[in-house]
């Protein structure tokens, strides 16, 4: 028996928004520790890793590990039926071929349940090593979304360069060039509004704007986002999900031929 009850159901709705543009289907791996999902987009350029810890749920029960293959388009349709204020419970029997979503209104006067067919997914899991990155940049998530949107107008690719002085985002195309420089915040009232750079060595990498824009669908999950870069390895874009976990996106860089 698997059962996970989330008081703040809107978080699951936001998680779905953060996943569905990149992934058509994914396996939700449930264990004692919580729910994890790891999947690459169709073209294997990016990888999404979601972690929702058991302690973040109001109620969590997982008698045996299970992997639930879900069509995210279908799951998204179902979660659209939940109100932002609803409490959401995900339930499945051991070895079941369906999963049930239960939505309770805050005062319990409306309860809906939706049963969805599970899929058999034979997905590869990738081992992602713990890495000390040469640069980490924390910035407001809305600022990052704005930068990705603005620079996408100029070209398909964006160069992210990080030095001690700050971080520079650049894109070049037919109409010209756009450069956005962010300096480390000297003084901020609110932690989440800060730009904080930690740098061991300068890094400059090129990434496809299309994927970066897809990652920013997670903006509503967190006020800030962390970018981690090292030479010639995938960029990590991490959004924390309140007290429950995180979604991380890995994006393979573009490399000179």
């Amino acid at each position: 028996m698997f059962e996970a009850r989330l008081l703040q159901g809107s978080l699951l709705k936001k998680v779905m928004e953060a996943l569905k543009e990149l992934l058509n289907e994914a396996a939700w791996d449930c264990s004692d520790a919580g729910i994890q999902l790891q999947a690459m987009d169709n073209s294997h350029v990016s990888l999404v890793s979601l972690n929702l810890r058991a302690e973040g749920f109001d109620k969590y029960r997982c008698d045996r590990n299970l992997s639930m293959g879900m069509n995210l388009g279908s799951m998204s349709k179902i979660l659209k039926c939940a109100s932002n204020e609803d409490i959401i419970t995900i339930k499945a029997q051991d070895n079941a071929d369906t999963v049930t979503f239960v939505f309770e209104s805050p005062d319990q006067d409306k309860v809906s349940d939706y049963e969805m067919k599970l899929m058999n997914l034979d997905q590869e899991h990738l081992g992602i090593p713990e890495t000390d990155y040469a640069c980490t940049i924390r910035l407001p998530s809305s600022e990052f979304a704005r930068i990705c949107r603005d620079l996408s107008q100029f070209g398909e690719s964006m160069v992210i360069s990080c030095t001690k002085e700050g971080v520079r985002f650049s894109a070049t195309g037919d109409i010209g060039t756009g450069n956005i420089k962010l300096a480390q915040s000297a003084k901020v009232d609110k932690e989440e509004e800060a730009v904080v750079i930690e740098m061991q060595e300068p890094v400059s990498l090129t990434f496809a704007c299309r994927y970066l824009n897809s990652f920013t669908k997670a903006t509503s999950l967190s006020k800030s986002v962390q970018l981690s870069m090292s030479p010639e390895v995938p960029l990590v874009v991490e959004y924390k999900i309140e007290d429950i976990g995180h979604v991380r996106y890995y994006l393979a860089p573009k490399i000179e031929d």
């Binding site: 690459m40 073209s43 294997h44 350029v45 990016s46 990888l47 590869e124 899991h125 990738l126 081992g127 992602i128 090593p129 690719s157 090129t206 496809a208 390895v233 995938p234 890995y250 393979a252 860089p253 573009k254 490399i255 000179e256 031929d257």
Partner: peptide
Amino acid sequence: AAAQSRIPHYFEIL
């Protein structure tokens, strides 16, 4: 022009 690399190039398949 720069070529797009792929994720499996960097991470080991378990």
